[in-house]
Amino acid sequence: MKVKEIAEKLNLTVICGGNGLDNEVNGGYSSDLLSDVMGSAQAGNIWITLQTHKNVMAIASLKDLAAVILVKGFLPDADMEAQSNEENIPVLGTNDETFEVNGKLFNLLNGK
């Protein structure tokens, strides 16, 4: 499923990185620990987190992640936003908490 479709179906705001909305998503990974994501997220995953600094995009890019979802209304720092646009990795926003986003995304990706 494309990032665009997930953003539409889960009512997520496209904050930046809009050129990457056609990135293909094969699953999700939820963590706020960067080494955990580095060690365990898979290429093509969408990353759910509340971290809002530039290193998030460095990791998303190194791991070939499809997009990042910021929970609870968090917004990216200016340099995170800039790198999201450069790398074409969308940052999506929601007021939902991680638990809710996880559940909705899981159901969507698994056709429930």
């Binding site: 960067l34 080494s35 955990d36 060690g39 987190t49 600094h53 290193n55």
Partner: peptide
């Protein structure tokens, strides 16, 4: 607070 410092860096290096 930035999400670094989980103590998983050296283990990640070993595993990879």
């Amino acid at each position: 607070e930035m999400g670094f410092g989980a103590g998983m860096g050296l283990p990640n290096m070993k595993n990879n």
